[in-house]
Write a protein that binds this DNA or RNA. Structure first.
Lengths: 91, 91
DNA sequence: TCTAAATATCTAAATGTTTCAATTAATAAG
DNA sequence: CTTATTAATTGAAACATTTAGATATTTAGA
């Protein structure tokens, strides 16, 4: 993973709202819907859209359209690649 | 590790200059001096001071005074804790 | 003590991020 | 086709971060 991608993922992980979204996946054990995120966070709809976009752009979430709804799954591969890059920082 | 600490570390990792600083530890295999960072990055001295402060505040670097110089060591424990938190995000 | 070197702090400009109201786009259901 | 629902986009305000110049602090050495 190059430095730009690493920075982008780090930035995506550096916000309380986005961290809550990611932690929601653990609770749901599968996928998370856009609407659920709206219930989870006390933020206006465009703000949620913005945060989800950042997580998708970083590659951490995979979006999938289901009619009018939007379903997200966690991309564990990207998370693993990020962890590998962190391990490499160690001496 | 609580979410605030996680966010702080993520933010510290989300900048090109700070990432370069951390990668310098790999090259040096031990510690890094403030002066070396000044040579490494094409930034004014106060900017470097600012970046190093953020890495120290996040707990990633441990500062140690050596006369007029400042020596930094990488805190691998914090890095490991951060990695553990990331692992926990996985399903 | 005086000077030079290394680092920190203060201040301000430039830039980036977060947030929401308003609007738009897409789709499902009647 | 019309309406309601879900999500994205636009535009702007509030806030935070990055950067550097000027200045202050600390310490080493003459």
């Amino acid at each position: 993973m190059d430095n730009r991608k690493f920075e982008k993922i780090s930035k995506a992980l550096s916000d309380a709202s986005r961290l809550s979204i990611l932690q929601q996946f653990k609770k749901k054990q599968d996928c998370v819907y856009c609407t659920e995120v709206h219930d989870l966070l006390d933020l206006a709809q465009p703000s949620i859209s913005h945060h989800l976009k950042q997580l998708v752009d970083a590659g951490l979430l995979i979006p999938e359209k289901e009619g009018r709804n939007l379903k997200y799954t966690l991309n564990e591969t990207v998370l693993d690649d990020y962890i590998t890059s962190l391990q490499r920082l160690k001496l």
